[in-house]
């Protein structure tokens, strides 16, 4: 474990022993070490403080730090488990763990629910979905009339909001994704599968 010396721990606040992280996640110790290499590169891209701030996170996703984006902001907030405005290494590993092909389906469903529940009320509200649809349209430069957006929302809430109270609760979300499993596709990253390119980041311990 020469790679994870006490010096590394001082330089990387929130750094946790890879053996401990591996025991709590679907990752092997080698995979956690590989993720540490990736983490180091992202966390030093703007400010070399051993933590990932929002700007660095956006830069890693879009290769453009200036691009404000609703989705990236939301994913960052969910990765920021301790609500400190930054992502430390243990947050990074635990959050990416949800995207592991072997992670629990329940965890993926839970994370995806939080992703859409923008204001964390415990419900996915129509207004939140509309906000995301509009953001998506802006991003893709696709134009849809407001009536069309409302039609899409009507159709969506007719299918998902079983008790028709205008918002989707966790139980309704579970049912909805069970009928529409393709919605969970974004919750699995093939890169995290054992033996794939994640291992390009493996740090060579001498």
């Amino acid at each position: 474990m020469g790679c994870f010396s006490s010096k590394a721990r001082r330089q990387f606040p929130g750094h946790e022993d890879p053996v401990s992280l591996a025991s709590q996640t679907a990752f092997t110790v080698s995979e956690v070490e590989a993720l540490f290499e990736l983490y180091k590169s992202i966390s030093s891209s703007v400010i070399d403080d051993g933590l990932i701030n929002k700007e660095e996170f956006q830069l890693a996703i879009f290769k453009n730090r200036k691009k404000e984006n609703l989705f990236a902001n939301r994913i960052f907030d969910l990765f920021d488990v301790k609500r400190k405005g930054v992502i430390d290494f243990s947050d990074f590993v635990r959050s990416l763990n949800v995207f592991h092909p072997n992670a629990q389906l329940e965890d993926k469903i839970d994370f995806s629910f939080k992703l859409y529940d923008l204001d964390s009320t415990g419900f996915i509200e129509r207004q939140e979905v509309k906000q995301m649809l509009i953001a998506l349209l802006c991003e893709s430069e696709m134009k849809l009339a407001d009536e069309t957006i409302e039609l899409i929302l009507d159709k969506t809430f007719l299918e998902a909001d079983v008790n028709q109270d205008g918002k989707i609760d966790k139980y309704e979300w579970n049912n909805f994704v069970s009928k529409n499993p393709s919605l969970l596709k974004i919750m699995t990253l093939p890169y995290l599968r054992y033996g794939t390119s994640l291992f390009y980041f493996i740090y060579r311990c001498d």
């Binding site: 890693a60 996703i61 859409y116 991003e139 899409i152 159709k155 998902a160 919605l183 093939p190 890169y191």
Partner: peptide, 25 residues
């Protein structure tokens, strides 16, 4: 066609939801 899809299908196709970029240099 967007109208034939539900809102979540549309949103989940957004490039911004794709975390794969994290692994690409």
């Amino acid at each position: 066609k967007p109208v034939s899809m539900n809102a979540f299908e549309l949103i989940s196709r957004s490039k911004s939801f794709n975390l794969e970029n994290l692994f690409e240099k």
